[in-house]
Amino acid sequence: MLDKNAIGRASPPTLNEVEKGAIRRFAEAIGDYNPIYYDEEYARASGYPTIIAPPTFPASFHSAADLRELLGVGIKSLLHAEQGFDYERPIFAGDRIYVSTRVSDVFERPGMSGKMDIAVIEDEGRDEEGNLVFRARRTLVVRAAKETP
């Protein structure tokens, strides 16, 4: 089972620059061709200063968090079981967002083939002034590797 001491372990904030090309590629990967994701004029006519990112765009952000370090185990496989996002505002092209990651919980849950190790990871994105932009919460089924990390 995962080490309960991992709870509260966190990574320092990591800068993510929101680029227009990355927004467009992300929208295309979902198959969402809403012009608000690539057409400046359309976005401005919609009341925004510039194009916005799809709300699930933080999926592409990276943080300094290495889950092996945060959880203190080698990882054989990860399965994404749950995901939530809360947004304070849309994410805009040109935003500079600092993402930090924290282990919110680790526990065991009965599964199809014995007990499963669950980790709940929270990410938080803040702008340069420190204002909250989004919070994300993911629940992962973790299969630890036999060897130590």
Partner: peptide, 21 residues
Amino acid sequence: VEAIAGFVEDPGRVRRVKARF
């Protein structure tokens, strides 16, 4: 998110989404 964004006619209005896979 695409489904709700279409319904409220603007993805910038989405404030929360969550689901279990």
